[in-house]
């Protein structure tokens, strides 16, 4: 392991419409094993920051350095995505396969694993989130809490080093939330978590950064 940070964003600018920049000179550093809370008002650009980190959108100015390499183009981000798991706000966006096991195995299969390896990784990831035996369940018939856990499993199956969680406890009932938090608490990865759930942030993160007026502070 090197001591260089996992992610480093330098003076990142981004705007969907040029007159209203979402990020205006945002700096952010994430070190190995760090657990960071990312807070800010609705529409402040928290999700956009995640999307910049994995290259779903490209910055209009500034640099994104991930795992020691600067990323400028789509292709630069391919290795980054394999090592960074992004959990979406709406699990229905993330689970697109008919059955749970197919969805969880989708990432490993894309990474070139054999079917048997992919199946093993999927089973392992499902065990990790406490959903053993859910392999052949139909994804769209799962409860909201189960969908969130399966979505987490789809990410964990790719063995990421960093987790980016976009409002993971949003819309979950108390039991589902507690269950998710227990699972997340047991994970060793570095983590950045967007949330308005202060208790969850306090339980899972050590450092807090605030996104305001396009810049990060904290």
């Amino acid at each position: 392991m090197t001591t260089s940070p996992l992610f480093q964003l330098d003076g990142v600018h981004f705007a969907y419409e040029s007159e209203r920049p979402v990020l205006a000179g945002a700096d952010f550093v994430l070190h190995a094993t760090e657990k960071v809370a990312l807070v800010g008002a609705n529409g402040a650009g928290k999700t956009t920051l995640f999307h910049l980190m994995v290259g779903l959108v490209l910055p209009q100015a500034g640099r994104v350095i991930a795992f020691g390499a600067e990323c400028r183009r789509e292709a630069d981000f391919h290795p980054v995505r394999a090592r960074t798991g992004l959990l979406f706000q709406d699990s229905d966006d993330q689970l697109f396969c008919p059955t749970v096991v197919e969805d969880v195995a989708f990432g490993p299969l894309n990474q070139g694993c054999s079917r048997a390896q992919a199946r093993n990784l999927a089973t392992e990831a499902l065990d990790l989130v406490g959903l053993s035996g859910f392999e052949d369940r139909v994804t769209h018939k799962l409860s909201g809490g189960q969908k969130r856990l399966v979505a987490l499993a789809t990410i964990l199956a790719m063995k990421p080093q960093v987790l980016l969680l976009d409002e993971p406890t949003n819309g979950l009932d108390r039991d589902a939330r507690a269950r998710l938090l227990r699972v997340l608490d047991g994970l060793p990865q570095a983590l950045v978590m967007i949330s308005h759930d202060d208790d969850a942030l306090a339980a899972l993160t050590r450092r807090r950064v605030t996104l305001e007026n396009g810049r990060l502070s904290g």
Partner: peptide, 15 residues
């Protein structure tokens, strides 16, 4: 986007 993040390149591998 979610599919791209998991390495989707247009080919669908069947399990």
């Amino acid at each position: 986007a979610a599919m791209r993040l998991r390495g989707f390149d247009g080919r669908l591998h069947l399990l």
